[in-house]
Amino acid sequence: MTAAYTLYAKPGFSATTIERLCSEARISNRAFYECFGGREELLQALHERCVEESLAVVAKALQDAPQTLDGRIGAGVRAYMEFATADWRRARIMHLEVRRSGDVLAASRQRAVSSFARLVEEASAEFPQAAKIDRHLLALGVIGALQELLIEWILAEEPTELEELIQVAVHICGRALGAS
């Protein structure tokens, strides 16, 4: 999985063969197939691990945040952006390779989006200013905005400073959810 974490991030899933994975991991092809049905299954396992870790980090940040809408937005966005960008491989797998892999991760990606949407909905549920429109659709829109910001950060020759990225993401989420 360590070899795939690096290779699937760069050069990317489509450019990574099983032979290259096995060579990098110093295992035989047979050993690989004893663990995974194919490179798609390995990518799914990596993606799901990244998502689970991200969800745990964000849930903890929301739990520890000031119990205001502003506090929850700031803590949740910061936790996610810092975690996603702390390891370039994680950021690439979660935000680029998940799209580039075609149908391979479609179901896994949808489960991830649904899980993050639930977090956004729950974190804003008790605040009446966030209830004026469909909370689920609003959560999906916020998630999409954060994903696009991270894709821009990943692909930029000169990436935006993390603090500026967080500031923009908090602003977008705050405006969308009705924070002050």
Rank of each mutant, 00 (worst) to 15 (best):
R99H: 14
L146Q: 09
G102W: 12
T160Y: 06
V120F: 12
G144N: 06
S115T: 11
S101F: 05
E161W: 07
A107V: 09
A112M: 10
V142W: 02
E152N: 02
E122P: 02
A156Y: 06
E152A: 10
V113Q: 13
L150H: 04
R99I: 13
L140V: 06
E164K: 12
G141T: 01
T160Q: 12
W153Y: 09
A125K: 11
A131N: 10
I154F: 03
L105N: 03
E161I: 05
E163G: 07
G102F: 10
I154K: 03
E161K: 15
K132F: 09
A125H: 13
G144T: 03
Q147Y: 13
L165M: 06
A112T: 04
A123C: 13
E121S: 08
L162T: 14
R99V: 13
L137D: 07
V142S: 02
E164Q: 14
S114Y: 09
I143H: 06
E126M: 07
A123H: 05
L138C: 04
A156H: 03
R99K: 11
H136N: 05
E161A: 15
E122D: 14
S124F: 01
F116D: 05
E158N: 12
Q147P: 01
E164P: 06
L165W: 00
P128D: 14
P128G: 06
A145N: 10
G141D: 00
E152P: 00
A145C: 12
A156K: 04
A112H: 01
L119Y: 05
E157L: 12
A131H: 05
S114W: 06
A130L: 01
L150Y: 01
L138H: 01
R99P: 00
L119F: 02
A112L: 03
F116W: 11
E122F: 02
S124P: 06
E157W: 05
Q129K: 12
S124T: 11
G102C: 06
G141R: 04
L162R: 15
A123I: 04
R109P: 00
L137A: 11
L105Q: 05
K132A: 14
